[in-house]
Structure formats: C-alpha cells, structure tokens
Amino acid sequence: MANLHWLANPGRFLRIAAVVLPWLAAATAVLLAVGLWLALRAPQDATQGAPAKIMYMHVPSAILSMTIFGAMAFASAIALIWRHPLADIAAKASAAIGAGFTASCLITGSLWGRPSWGTFWVWDARLTSELILFFIYLGYIAIWQAIEDPQRASRAAAIVALAGSVNLPIIHYSVVWWNTLHQPPGLMQGRTDPSMAVPLLTLMGAFFLFYVTLLLWRMEREIVGRKIRQFRLLRAQA
C-alpha cells in the first residue's frame, strides 16, 4: 500500500511518466512491427485456411478488452475505498481504450465468422459475452458524461464498474450455459499450432504495451484537463 500512496502525487506521477513514456512508446512500436511481420508471414492454418489470419487481431483484442475491464474495476475499487487520486483517473483513461478493443474484437470476429460460418454474426457464447461487455463499457462512459462534477462522476462511474465486474462472470457463465443448450459452432476449434503461437504471443505483448503507453498518455491528459478546470473555477471565483 505504501507504494500506492507514494504514486498518489500527480506531480510525481507526471515526472515518472515523462521518463518512462518514450521508452514504452518505442517498445510498443517495435514489438507491434515484429508481431505483425511474424503474423503475416506465418504459415496458414491447415484446417481453417487463410481466414485464421484474422485471429492475430481478434484474439489480442478480445484478451485486452477483458483485461482492461478488470484493470478498470480494480482501479475503481481503489478509488472508492482509499480515495486514491490517480485510481479514478486511470479507470477513466482506460474506458475508451477498452471499449475500442471490444469493438475491434466484435468486428474482427464477425469478419472471421463470415467465411467460417457463412454469416457475419452467430450468437456464439464468446461473441455474445463480448457484446454485453461492450454495452457495459458504453454505460460506464455514459455515466462519466452525464455527471459534470469530476469528483462525483468518478464515484458514480466506480460503482458502475464494480457492479459490472461482479456481474460479468455471472453474465459470461449464463451466456455459455444458454449457448451450450443451443449448440452453435465456435471460432477457433482445435489446438493452435506452435508456428502460430509465437506471432500471437508477440502481438498480445505488443497490444498490452500499447495499452500501458496509451493509458499513461490519457492519464496525463486527464490530469492536465482537471488542472485547467480548476484554474477556470478559480478564475470565475475571483
């Protein structure tokens, strides 16, 4: 906990971010380039053919969409319980990235579904859960927009994130339960060949670094934005 409080000072956070960010950004760019290169020249999947190349975008997006929501819920809990000043900024800064990856997961999933299922959309358990996750992200973003005062908005949004994170496992489980009783096919059946695992893992790493880099930038933007707001309030007061 001591570390958390040490990082709680936005000024210190900004100084550390300024040092770390160039390296993070460079590492992201390199890893992303390497991952894309590996993915595009990886051999074709024997059973699924060329469309399986979509996997390299779909799977990292899916994993990030869930990881980011987990991170948001964690940050929200810290913001709500310890009133940690950076936690709600981190949660807010994450939301748009997470929603974007969720959308990307849904779109790439349906582009992959068309050649494998013959339709763009099947009520597959994973795609359906992902769609509901997308709705929860939208609700979270909406509540930030609906309440003007950032302090109150942050607490309301934290409650939304916590309610979502408690319910998400239940939702996912219920959708799987519903789905197995209706029996449609899923994407990615069978095991992944090792020749595909290396590019996939590289891209996952790259997407994760991308999230961290962008998160820091967005947090910095939020901090600067709040300072501007504070200035304007003081100015109006004077």
């Binding site: 074709q44 053919g49 060329a50 190349k53 997006s61 068309r114």
Partner: peptide, 22 residues
C-alpha cells in the same frame, strides 16, 4: 489471401486503425 482478402485485410485495418486513431 486465397480469395479471403475482403475479410482479412479489413480486420487488420479496423484494429490497427483504431489503435492509430486513438
């Protein structure tokens, strides 16, 4: 891409485009 270009490349464009855009 063995005739699947219209499914594969849009998937890359959407994901990487979102990352670049944001």
């Amino acid at each position: 891409m063995g005739g699947f270009a219209w499914f594969i490349w849009p998937a890359y464009v959407v994901t990487l485009g979102f990352m670049l855009g944001i």
